[in-house]
Simulated assay, not measured.
Amino acid sequence: MTHFDYHYLLQQVQEKGSDLYRRDFVIDDIDRPVVMKLLAYFLRDGEVAAKENVDLHKGLLLTGPVGCGKTSIMRILSNFSLPDHRPMLKSSVEISLEFTDMGNDVIMRYSRKAFNPYRRMPYVHCFDDLGLEPLVNYWGNKINLMSQILFTRYNLMHSHGMITHVITRLNAAELETIYGDHVRSRMREMFNLIAFQPDSRDKRK
């Protein structure tokens, strides 16, 4: 038995979407299973999460077609999270641009220095548009910046319980092509895969 009223919570999600985005914001029936899983995750509802095969000790890999509302839903659902579990959302493309200005400090900012300085709690980061970021130049060499950040956060997950979320339009094979099989294998340990249906409506139209 769960202590939460998910019918009421879905109404709250729609109201929050209307406040943040547009007045006619609605959760389509086809998207409800995704929203239910995300709600159970952010509410730390162990009963429903277990039923939905969602591991509360892992992060989220949210995937789906272009325009299905991945980023919007993640922003809305994070409002239902406890402060310690609320993710800070950042575009992978923006992180690559930061690296151009700040260099190696950017990797540290999103990995080994991603801790609350007063409580030593690891920050939860959500990296949007994973796989769309360009390679960056580092001392004359092209490097895959997000691969390094994810690899370091994987190690910190095991040593400090650091949780990472990612949002991407790419599938597992495409991610492996970009980041290699060593990162993909670690992704299986880091993330719950939650996918919008391929025919989920384009919310931008």
Rank of each mutant, 00 (worst) to 15 (best):
H165P: 03
G69H: 08
R120N: 15
L77H: 03
N137V: 15
R86S: 05
T2G: 03
Y110I: 03
I167Y: 10
H7V: 10
V93N: 09
V106L: 01
D5L: 01
S78N: 01
S81I: 02
G69K: 06
L132C: 10
F191Q: 07
M1K: 13
H7F: 11
D28T: 05
K90H: 05
L156N: 01
Y123W: 13
N155F: 02
Y154G: 04
R184C: 02
D19R: 15
G180I: 07
S185C: 01
S78H: 02
G59P: 06
E52I: 00
F99D: 04
S91W: 03
D105F: 08
M102E: 14
I95V: 15
D105L: 15
S185H: 07
I143H: 05
L135P: 10
D55I: 05
I149C: 02
P198C: 06
G131F: 04
Y41T: 05
D202S: 07
L170I: 10
N171M: 13
M190C: 04
C68G: 01
F115G: 07
S81R: 07
K142I: 02
N144T: 09
H85V: 00
R44P: 00
K113I: 06
L170Y: 15
G64R: 05
F191S: 00
N141E: 14
G69T: 00
A114E: 08
E189V: 14
V106C: 03
K142M: 13
E15I: 13
I76S: 08
V136F: 14
L132I: 06
I30F: 09
I73P: 01
D19F: 14
G59C: 00
L43H: 01
T168E: 06
P117K: 09
P122R: 10
H158P: 07
K113C: 13
F25S: 06
T168W: 12
T152N: 12
V166Y: 07
H182K: 15
D202Y: 07
E52A: 12
V54P: 08
R22M: 00
T71C: 07
K51G: 06
N192S: 05
R153F: 00
I30E: 12
L89P: 02
I163Q: 02
